[in-house]
Computed example of a mutant assay.
Amino acid sequence: MRRSFVSLFMVLAIGGTIGSLAYPVFYSYPHRFDAVKAAIADPGPLVSTPWGPLSAADRDLVVQVELDGLWETSAGRQAVEKAPTKEIKDAGGQLVTGHTDLDKRVRTVAKDLAITLPTQPTSEQQGWLAQLTAAQDGEYRQLFANLLREEHGRIFQQLAQVRSSTRNTLVRDLATVTNRTELAHISALEKTGYVDFDAVARNATASPASTPTVLPAPSAP
């Protein structure tokens, strides 16, 4: 009787071991994207604020909105001055107007959340401005439209991710307003007629978080 009990126990133990090994294979495969979803939803280290927990991703977004405004406002003003076409002048004007408003909002949010904001564009962004300054005529039109369009597409994705996961109401509201502004800018840039949609699609598919790729200038019309 005792031997039979021991044998039964061993069979159950072996069966449990096999079941535990089989579980990841037969059950987890349909949920293979859960880890990706969890990574997006994971807020990381949190700081308590009156407007809800503040995550590292939240802080990064606030800083990124300010950085984008610093260089894109300059790019917009330059486009208005150079104005090789009415459409580019209009797009430049929208960049200036949109980011001037966002700058006021982001500074208020940063002050409330005790986030230190940058005071000048990154070295990479300064490099983009230098390229725009040096470009002329057809090269400038192509560079302005595609450089700004790709950069707006990148921040657009970051906004969507943070907007969907943040638990901080100030960050959520900022992401919502910035999202609308960025979409308006994307539409204005596309209306210039110089955006290479094939290149934008290729770059977005290859690496959604990559920095903009400068496209070769077209032959002058």
Rank of each mutant, 00 (worst) to 15 (best):
T119V: 04
A201F: 00
R141W: 05
E124G: 10
L189N: 02
Q78E: 09
T178V: 08
P43T: 02
Q94N: 06
A35V: 12
A39S: 13
D112F: 11
P221N: 00
H185A: 05
A134S: 12
V96W: 12
A83M: 09
E139Y: 01
V62L: 12
L102M: 09
F5Q: 14
P212E: 05
V106C: 10
D101C: 00
D58P: 08
H99C: 01
A188R: 02
S48A: 10
G127R: 06
A91K: 02
G19L: 13
V177S: 05
F197Q: 13
R167V: 02
Y23P: 01
A110W: 07
A217D: 04
D60E: 15
L54F: 07
V6H: 03
T97I: 04
A199D: 14
V6R: 11
R154I: 15
A209S: 13
A145V: 10
L12R: 09
V96A: 06
L147M: 08
Q158F: 12
Y23V: 08
R154H: 05
V106S: 07
D198Q: 09
S20L: 12
N203G: 02
S4K: 11
A79T: 11
G52V: 03
L67H: 06
R149V: 14
V109Q: 12
S210T: 07
L170E: 15
L147V: 09
I186P: 00
T119H: 09
P50S: 02
Q158D: 15
V11T: 08
R2W: 00
L54T: 02
P30C: 11
P118W: 03
T169D: 13
P53I: 01
A38K: 04
A175K: 00
R59E: 10
G19F: 14
N179F: 13
Q120I: 00
V195D: 09
Q126R: 08
R154W: 09
R180E: 15
D196T: 11
A75Y: 13
